[in-house]
């Protein structure tokens, strides 16, 4: 049996979990084993039925009053409990903050290795996996050992696809063996995100600024450009390290991942850790004084020139075009 730990947000299964189940189903088919899902807490009830479409045969539903607020180690205890009763070949989770966190706890509890952010998995003993390293700038082929294979699936590395419904379909509630110490770490309270402007990961237009912007004030024209196009401003790590912009604006391996229709990158050299954050951009327009800057190898369009000259010119040209 292959077990997939399913995450949901307000009763909707998260996209990375559906992608994980898709990979899990293919793995189960190759092994000739059934695919099962594990959902945790009473809030998960609405998502249970939707899982049949992804080829899930059995949904194991862990219920306990204490599970209603997220508690990573208690979730891991649920996984380990199910591993004891169901004896799976492999347990999968999505390579999200929570998925990676819970599986690391499972690895620690069982002494098993964990392969994080896999993009391809071949069954056998050991499993052969391909996984992301360096935030996705490099791939690693690896052997994943262990009596039960524990891994997470890199978000957006495969597309979620519904599959043939399994022969039978059942939901099995269970009360996992949980200790009070499993809840030592649990969400005490939540705070909403400040509402308002478009967020970087969702923006259709991102205007990014790097060291070449020159100063915090240099971002004024970039702000103007972004606003005209209904977009938002992002930046490179050099810019956050210099204190010119808050870290929430940073695009890259240790910042935000963006997926706009167009990324306008101004005075950014195109370091690999920056570009992994912009992989989702449909098109890239570069403004840079250096024709040899590495970012040009990722770009669709480029203007060779000084940010301080080009961006204000672009702003006025758009205003004219707009008839302002």
């Amino acid at each position: 049996m292959i077990v997939g730990l399913v995450e949901h947000d307000g009763g909707v299964v998260s996209e990375p979990s559906l992608q994980m189940l898709t990979l899990g189903r293919r793995l189960a088919e190759r092994l000739g084993e059934p695919l099962a899902a594990l959902v945790i807490g009473s809030e998960a009830r609405p998502v249970v039925d939707g899982l049949a479409a992804y080829g899930v045969e059995t949904v194991h539903h862990a219920v306990d009053d204490r599970l209603d607020r997220y508690a990573p180690d208690a979730w891991a205890a649920c996984v380990v409990d199910l591993m004891g009763t169901a004896g799976p070949t492999a347990v999968l989770a999505a390579g999200t903050d929570r998925g990676n966190e819970v599986m690391a706890h499972v690895g620690a509890r069982t002494g098993l290795p964990v392969g994080a952010n896999c993009t391809e998995v071949q069954p056998g003993d050991p499993f052969l996996v391909t996984r992301l390293r360096w935030g996705g700038s490099l791939l690693e082929d690896a052997r994943l050992h262990g009596e039960v294979k524990l891994l997470t699936v890199a978000p957006h590395s495969i597309q979620a696809e519904e599959g043939p419904a399994a022969g039978g379909w059942s939901v099995e509630e269970f009360s996992p063996a949980l200790q009070d110490t499993d809840f030592r770490v649990q969400v005490a309270r939540q705070e909403g995100r400040p509402a308002g402007k478009v967020s970087l990961p969702e923006a259709r237009v991102v205007v990014g600024g790097g060291r070449g912007v020159g100063s915090p004030e240099g971002f004024g024209p970039l702000e103007e450009l972004a606003e005209l196009l209904g977009g938002v401003v992002g930046c490179s790590r050099v810019v956050t390290s210099l204190g010119w912009r808050p870290h929430t604006d940073q695009v890259g391996q240790t910042g935000v991942r963006i997926a706009p229709d167009i990324y306008i990158a101004c005075g950014i050299s195109g370091a690999i850790q920056h570009m992994v954050g912009a992989k989702g951009a449909k098109r890239i327009l570069v403004i840079n004084t250096d024709r040899q800057a590495p970012i040009l190898t990722h770009a669709d369009y480029a203007i060779i020139g000084d940010v301080q000259q080009v961006v204000p010119a672009l702003v006025s040209a758009i205003r004219e075009g707009k008839g302002l």
Partner: peptide, 26 residues
């Protein structure tokens, strides 16, 4: 337990950039 076999570079998009112009001319 997780044993590296090899590292690989992901397939690049290898784009052909279109230069729109120099400075404000672009």
């Amino acid at each position: 337990g997780l044993e590296k076999i090899r590292l690989r570079l992901p397939q690049g998009r290898d784009k052909q950039v279109e230069i729109l112009g120099d400075g404000a001319a672009g």
